[in-house]
Amino acid sequence: MNMSATHVEDLKNVMEDWKNELLVYKFALDEMDTKFSIISQEYNLIHGHNPIEHTKSRIKSFESIVNKLARKGCDITTQCAKEHIHDIAGVRIICSFIQDIYNIMDVLRQREDLKILEVKDYIQHPKPNGYRSLHLIVEIPVYLTNRVEHVKVEIQVRTIAMDFWASLEHKIYYKLQNDVPHQLTDELKEAADIAHYLDEKMQNIKREID
């Protein structure tokens, strides 16, 4: 069936809106990368220790955004996406020690160029499957040529051990198409507990050295 010229033009306008909107989230990630680079260098200068091993950032794909809006029963619009999806832009911070995670959160709380909207502490309160991480939803201003956009970014802060476990668990669930036998889920939970024990052990060793 041939689409009318009007319908084609409407579709182009919709895609252009999404393209522009996702570009704003890209700018937000650029801002966050700069902030974390400054935090890392300054913290290292003051304390002689860099709390950030490395960072990763990503923007959700258009397909993932649409699927999430559909699951929430929302219209497929950029406005609904901004209101109902808070992890379109995401940053993952990998640390050496558990205490580094909370130090980073404390630093972010003191900054005036962002606002922490939500905290989910899956380290103190891990998920039933053993997942541990600190999740923050922050809002930062992005200064464009003709306006200021306040953009939400999800920040996940975790140790190397937590990240290794989460990556492995994701690969297993993806390979088995989410049909993971109980024996494997039990072993994954045990591995998560071992990873947490390692984190606590290394934190204690660092504390003794300090």
Rank of each mutant, 00 (worst) to 15 (best):
Y122M: 00
E63Q: 11
I116S: 01
G73H: 02
K68F: 07
E112S: 15
K72W: 10
D100V: 12
D106V: 13
R58G: 02
D100H: 15
E83F: 06
S61L: 05
C74R: 15
K68Q: 05
I104F: 10
M105N: 12
D113K: 08
F62P: 05
R58E: 02
E83C: 02
E118D: 12
F62L: 11
M105S: 09
C95V: 10
A81Q: 02
I65P: 01
G90H: 01
K127L: 05
V119D: 01
K60H: 08
K115P: 07
I116N: 01
D106M: 14
K72Q: 12
I98Q: 13
D106R: 15
A81G: 04
N103A: 07
D121M: 00
I93H: 09
S96R: 14
A89Q: 07
A70Q: 14
H125L: 00
P128M: 04
V119I: 12
K82V: 11
R111C: 04
V66F: 08
E63G: 00
H84Y: 15
D121L: 02
C74G: 04
K115R: 14
D113L: 05
M105A: 10
S96G: 13
R92L: 05
A81R: 03
A89I: 01
F97R: 14
I65E: 00
I59N: 03
I59D: 01
H86S: 12
S64H: 11
R92P: 05
L108P: 08
N129Q: 09
G73C: 00
I59T: 05
I93M: 05
D121R: 00
S61M: 04
D100T: 13
K115L: 13
K82T: 11
K60I: 09
K120M: 06
D113T: 08
D75M: 07
S96T: 14
Y122W: 02
E112W: 10
K115V: 13
I85S: 03
K127M: 05
I88M: 03
Q124K: 11
L117F: 08
E112D: 15
A89H: 05
H86D: 08
Q110P: 11
A81K: 02
L114M: 13
I76A: 09
Y122T: 01
D121K: 00
V66D: 07
A89M: 03
F97G: 12
I104D: 08
N129H: 10
R58Q: 05
Q79M: 09
I76D: 07
R109L: 14
D100E: 13
A89Y: 03
Q124G: 12
T77S: 14
I101Y: 05
F62R: 12
K127R: 10
I65A: 04
I116F: 02
S64R: 11
C74A: 12
V91P: 08
N67V: 11
I123L: 04
Q110I: 12
K60W: 07
I85M: 04
I101L: 04
K115D: 09
R111H: 06
N129G: 03
S61Q: 08
F62E: 06
R109K: 15
V91I: 14
E112P: 09
